[in-house]
Design a protein around this nucleic acid. Structure first.
Lengths: 253, 253
DNA sequence: ACCCAATATTCGGTTATCGCGAACGCCCCC
DNA sequence: GGGGGCGTTCGCGATAACCGAATATTGGGT
């Protein structure tokens, strides 16, 4: 997390370009050149170097993210502790509930969606595998933080802040810790429009033998389509059950 | 596919380092330095620049592939024509057959595994999402090539060669084209230990409205566990059925 | 069919910076 | 407690990354 003493600027520039290509959903030389404030010729060299290595693809005059990143990404995901143990169970959870089921882990003080499966009636969302979100504003993130030492949570909030994404996002630190206490006692967390207006979810942590969270799972659904009973009883049951199975797999095999 | 006139060497070096970190499944400075033939100090600067951008992670004295690549990889996968249409059907196929079901596309004259799901009795394999393989040596690859113009296939074979991976890999070009004819007439392909000894699979192309393949799906299983009837009749039925559903989704929605 | 504008691409000179090698510091293992 | 193998820091010199202008290419409008 420490700034390198001698950063390789050229590499920084290249990844900046890659990230811009993703953000813009494909872009040409001139457009990128303006954005990164590097001359067109230089941008051109970067782009072609990356195309040559197949990390970008060139489609007409637009450059796009190449499929080679998938190999690296899937590899990184497989290296995580819980992906393999959780995957099938998430599928089942989505199947049972008909909703969108998710798996999130913490990495570098951020939440990273590792996997998601859409049930029959799943909402269409802005989440995708690999997407990073602040830990303070999702049920998943709260579930993870509830099973981390307070000082670690403080440290995460200090670094990443508590930017509100909706009117419901918790921004008061003391209230946030109260909520974590609550979550710790039930072993599941609710999210009522804290990250996205209209969206609610029920999440549960996956903890290891030392009662430290290694990730969290959730079911998400539109708030206007769900009864109180389902939200406060059925879904927590399903999510807790699934979390339990994953924990068993993870800790005793 | 053309060598850039003015490659950005520093970027090349960085990606070489990244690829070595993946190959070695995590590595330290010295080990990498020897492999890429760049001084330790320089490798160190590259590594820390990448860690800073969270594309690598540092675990003790070992550097590892970072989860950030997953965002780029998943993004690239979602941009493909058929991933979204195929995913659920592949799941069903794995469920029905109990075996390992795969989705492959062609990119840059190579086969890229986009998705795979393990059924109940699935073999453990060396494939993972994002993995690239030669198109000539898998059932999936042959299914794709069977529905491409001959000159395009020639071009692919010229570029990527026909390196044999097992004793069964087809290396004779005329025999290969005969096989493609055969595949074209049935709309499915067999692979009997052509890529991996002991492994067989049944594959079918996904074609678009112009009868050009946009990908292929398959079921893979160990050759010693399967009866002739299942291999030559049941599995082709399932695979063809699934391919058909995917084609409908893809072409008419 | 033509032209014009916008974009991608090429090329040579300049200077930032990348990589080297030596020195330092650290930790583990003998 | 010492030695060998690491990772890390630092300053110098050569390299190659960047810039800007010139050239090629593409597409759209009349």
């Amino acid at each position: 997390m420490v700034e390198p003493k001698h950063p390789v600027r050229t590499v920084d520039r290249s990844f900046e370009i890659i990230e811009i290509v993703q953000e813009l959903d494909g872009a040409g030389v001139s457009e990128i050149s303006e954005r990164v404030d590097i001359g067109k010729s230089s941008v051109h060299n970067h782009l072609n170097t990356l195309v040559n290595r197949e990390y970008l693809s060139k489609e007409g005059d637009e450059y796009h993210i190449g499929i080679s990143f998938l190999g690296l990404g899937a590899y990184a995901r497989n290296r995580t502790e819980i992906y393999d143990d959780a995957r099938q169970e998430i599928d089942k959870l989505a199947d049972e509930t008909g909703e969108l089921a998710n798996l999130l882990i913490e990495r570098n003080k951020m939440g990273v969606y590792l996997y998601q499966t859409e049930g029959e009636n799943a909402v269409e969302l802005d989440t995708y595998e690999g997407k990073q979100v602040g830990l303070h504003c999702t049920g998943l993130g709260k579930a993870i933080l509830a099973f981390r030492p307070r000082e670690e949570v403080e440290n995460i909030l200090d670094t990443r802040g508590m930017e509100p994404l909706t009117e419901q996002t918790i921004t008061d630190r003391e209230r946030f810790f109260d909520e974590l206490d609550e979550i710790r006692s039930h072993k599941y967390a609710f999210d009522r429009e804290e990250r996205l207006t209209g969206l609610c979810c029920v999440a549960a942590p996956i903890t290891n033998a030392n009662d430290r969270s290694v990730g969290a799972i959730s079911v998400a659904c539109p708030i206007h389509r769900i009864s109180d009973e389902r939200f406060y009883e059925e879904l927590p049951d399903s999510v807790l059950g699934t979390a339990n199975v994953i924990e068993l797999k993870h800790n005793y095999s």
